[in-house]
């Protein structure tokens, strides 16, 4: 409830024009200054792994999707997530924390997250062609982005660092809208 109240206040302030729309430098999220917790570190490590796995899928989508809208969406998600990964890596290194590859799906599950898309799924995508590829690609990527939303929601609840929490909110919002676009594409 505290969070809901805080958001409500933020919305009211924004609606009233009392927000502080400090425009950050383009492409650069606010620095991860201030205290951070183990949860923040774990979230960044997991999200980097999750997105890097997604990048392989997205490369396939750019190369093999049939419709231009799907190719473009894959391309836009690809480049924006690569940018995010860069930011997250910078934050970890500013905390002197190694970027550990969290690639074992069991590891994710142990942390209460969802299994990531693994090598078997990527192989299935590599083998598929045409509209069959596109259907599999979209359904896999929709699930992948639902998983990102779930991880981001956990961070919003359990994280500490303000910049990381802000990033998590942005991830939740952007992936939700991407899913919207993909559901239209998969049924259209």
């Amino acid at each position: 409830m505290r969070r809901a109240f805080a958001i409500l206040i933020a919305v009211i302030l924004l609606l009233a024009g009392c927000g502080t729309p400090v425009t950050p430098k383009q492409g650069v999220l606010p620095a991860s200054d201030g205290p951070h917790s183990d949860y923040d570190v774990m979230f960044l490590q997991m999200m980097i792994s999750h997105q890097e796995q997604g990048l392989e899928m997205l490369e396939l989508g750019r190369a093999k999707a049939v419709r231009e809208d799907v190719v473009n969406l894959a391309g836009a998600i690809d480049v924006t997530e690569a940018e995010e990964v860069q930011t997250m890596r910078t934050w970890l290194s500013s905390w002197n924390v190694p970027v550990v590859t969290v690639s074992d799906p069991g590891n994710h599950a142990a942390h209460g997250a969802q299994p990531a898309t693994g090598p078997a799924e990527l192989k299935a995508l590599q083998d598929a062609t045409g509209t069959d590829f596109e259907l599999k690609f979209l359904n896999l990527l929709i699930a992948h982005q639902h998983n990102a939303v779930e991880m981001a929601q956990q961070q919003a609840l359990n994280g500490q660092n303000a910049a990381v929490k802000k990033l998590a909110e942005r991830i939740e919002l952007s992936r939700t809208q991407q899913i919207k676009q993909m559901l239209a594409l998969v049924s259209g």
Binding site: T23, P24, Q26, G27, L29, D69, N72, L73, G75, A76, V79, T80, A82, E83, R170, L173, S174, Q177, Q178, Q181
Partner: peptide, 14 residues
């Protein structure tokens, strides 16, 4: 791309 919130030009040099 087809734009979404969070992909405003100030956020996405990419």
């Amino acid at each position: 791309h087809t734009s979404i919130f969070t992909w405003e030009p100030i956020y996405t040099l990419a």
